[in-house]
C-alpha cells in the first residue's frame, strides 16, 4: 500500500510519518515543516527552473568564461575552446573530464529533466524502473558541473602577475554558474514519487 492511500505522509526533513487531513494545511508535529503527500507545484516549478537554465545555457557557451593575458598572446576562452585547447596540448583525459562536466552533464541534465517532466505530464504508462534510474543519475551528476566554475576561481587567483600574465573571469562564467544552480534546483523540485504514481507499461506486477 502507498502512504498517500492511507492518508499518511513522510516528512522530507525529519522522516516522521504522520496522518494528513485531506483538506487544509498541516505541519509535521516533530519538526514543524509543512507536510504534503506530493511536493506542491513540483512539475511547474521544475519546468520554470529547467527552461530558465536552458536559456542561460546559450550565453554560457557563447560568451567567454575567461580572459587570458600573457606577454606574447592574449585571448578569451569559452568552455568549448578550453576543452579543445586541452585536447591539442596532449591532455586528452583532462579534456574529456572538463567536456563531460561542463558540456555533457548540463546538456544531459536539461534533456533528462524535460523528458521526465513530459512523461509525468502525459500521464501514460511508462517503464518506471528506467525513468527512476534516469532521475537518480540526474540527481547524482548535477553538482559535478561546478568543476569549471571552481577551476576559473583557482586560475584567476593564481595567475595574477600584472603585465606579465593574468587571467580574468568573464561574463560566460556568471551564465554558466546560473545554469548549474538552476539545474540543481530543477532536479530538487522534481518529486520522484510522481513517476511511481504512473502505470507501468509491463503490468501491475510491481503494484503492491
Amino acid at each position: 500500500m502507498l502512504a498517500i492511500n492511507a492518508n499518511l505522509a513522510r516528512c522530507h526533513v525529519c522522516g516522521k510519518v504522520s496522518h494528513l487531513p485531506s483538506e487544509g494545511a498541516f505541519a509535521c508535529p516533530r519538526c514543524h515543516t509543512p507536510l504534503h503527500f506530493r511536493t506542491p507545484y513540483s512539475v511547474s516549478r521544475s519546468w520554470a527552473y529547467t527552461l530558465t537554465a536552458a536559456i542561460c545555457f546559450v550565453p554560457a557557451n557563447l560568451y567567454p568564461i575567461m580572459n587570458v593575458q600573457s606577454i606574447d598572446k592574449s585571448f578569451t576562452s569559452t568552455i568549448m575552446s578550453g576543452v579543445i585547447d586541452l585536447a591539442q596540448n596532449d591532455m586528452l583525459p583532462i579534456a574529456i573530464v572538463v567536456f563531460v562536466a561542463s558540456i555533457a552533464v548540463p546538456l544531459f541534465k536539461l534533456i533528462g529533466i524535460i523528458v521526465l517532466l513530459t512523461i509525468v505530464q502525459r500521464g501514460k504508462p511508462v517503464k518506471r524502473q528506467q525513468a527512476i534510474r534516469m532521475y537518480r543519475f540526474i540527481d547524482f551528476i548535477g553538482r559535478w558541473s561546478m568543476l569549471d566554475i571552481f577551476v576559473i576561481s583557482i586560475l584567476v587567483s593564481l595567475v595574477s602577475f600584472g603585465q606579465i600574465a593574468s587571467i580574468e573571469a568573464n561574463i560566460g562564467a556568471t551564465a554558466f554558474g546560473a545554469v548549474v544552480i538552476l539545474t540543481l534546483l530543477a532536479a530538487e523540485s522534481f518529486d520522484p514519487r510522481l513517476i511511481w504514481d504512473l502505470q507501468d507499461t509491463e503490468d501491475d506486477r510491481t503494484e503492491l
Binding site: M1, A3, L8, I132, P192, I195, D197
Partner: peptide, 16 residues
C-alpha cells in the same frame, strides 16, 4: 506512534 514503526519510501511512497 506510527512514526516509530512505519515509514514510507521517499522515492515511491510505499508504506514499509
Amino acid at each position: 506512534d506510527e512514526g516509530d514503526t512505519i515509514t514510507a519510501c521517499l522515492e515511491c511512497d510505499l508504506l514499509l
